[in-house]
């Protein structure tokens, strides 16, 4: 990439940093140059967040409809999958999968609920009282 072709588009990096790239100068030699961003990348990032919003919304509706437990919603909200949530809580993956069922979730003891609450950085109250309608 030539130095003069390096995009300087607005991006979510604005208040954080410019990023460094290696570009060719007029003499055809590599040098370092800073960039504020590239629209192509911003679009890819937005696309990823749209999908996260879609998944989170679906999770919320599932909890409201009574087909999934609040764990499912907070898992999606925290961009986690079963493996990551299992790693954070210390439960087995299949246990986490069971805890996504409302009937199983209702029977969880305080200690287990606390592990989820701590992972999601919320209180146990917030976790058990989430019903997908608020």
């Amino acid at each position: 990439m030539k130095k003069e072709e390096l995009p300087q588009d607005k991006s979510k990096l604005a208040d954080f940093t410019r990023e460094l790239l290696y570009v060719k100068n007029i003499e055809g030699q590599y040098e370092k140059e800073l960039s504020t961003g590239w629209d192509i990348k911003s679009d890819a990032l937005n696309c990823a967040w749209d999908e996260i919003a879609r998944r989170t919304n679906f999770a919320k509706e599932s909890v409201a409809a009574g087909s999934k437990s609040p764990v499912f919603y907070f898992m999606e909200l925290n961009l986690m999958d079963l493996a990551t949530l299992a790693a954070y809580t210390g439960f087995w993956k299949w246990s986490v999968k069971r805890h996504l069922k409302p009937a199983v979730f209702k029977k969880l003891n305080h200690q287990k609920l606390e592990k989820y609450a701590k992972t999601f950085k919320i209180s146990v109250d917030e976790l058990i009282h989430f019903d997908g309608t608020n």
Binding site: L13, A44, A48
Partner: peptide, 18 residues
């Protein structure tokens, strides 16, 4: 397919991955 392509671009060009 769209999500996959978006992911390739993020893996490919995003800060710190490039």
């Amino acid at each position: 397919s769209r999500l996959n392509l978006g992911q390739i671009v993020r893996m490919q060009e995003e800060i710190g991955t490039g």
